[in-house]
């Protein structure tokens, strides 16, 4: 991706759509851009707040390193998982070629 200059008022829809791996049609992009910009304009209400000294709260109940015993279990049956694959070769999921032949 080329250089990108942050703009806090507008969503650069094509830049973001590429990051999100969504291909957008031209009309769709224009419409989404407008809708997202108006949502952003509302969300910026947070700028009214003095947030100095507040600890960012990423989770309702602070938790650290929840661990459990490392015991092998049979959680899933690989055949049931593979049956959901959109394209399959034997016990593998088929995808388009990712790397050049060397």
């Amino acid at each position: 991706m080329s250089e990108h200059t942050p703009d806090l008022d507008h969503v650069d829809i094509h830049y973001v759509a590429n990051l999100a791996r969504i291909e957008l049609g031209e009309e769709e992009a224009v419409r989404l851009q407008e809708e997202l910009d108006s949502t952003l304009a509302y969300i910026r209400k947070l700028n009214e707040l003095d947030l100095e000294g507040l600890e960012p709260m990423s989770h309702p109940h602070p938790q650290v390193n929840v661990l459990r015993e490392d015991v092998p279990t049979q959680e899933n049956d690989s055949e049931a998982l593979l049956q959901n694959a959109p394209s399959r070769v034997q016990d593998l999921v088929r995808v388009p070629q990712m790397m050049e032949d060397t």
Partner: peptide
């Protein structure tokens, strides 16, 4: 798309971290 924008470089502090602090409030 909105979430990707919020988390992308240059916006993270202006939106996401600010929201986490306001959540504490």
């Amino acid at each position: 798309l909105l979430g990707t924008y919020m988390l992308s470089s240059g916006y993270y502090d202006a939106y996401y971290v600010k929201a986490l602090k306001a959540r504490a409030l």
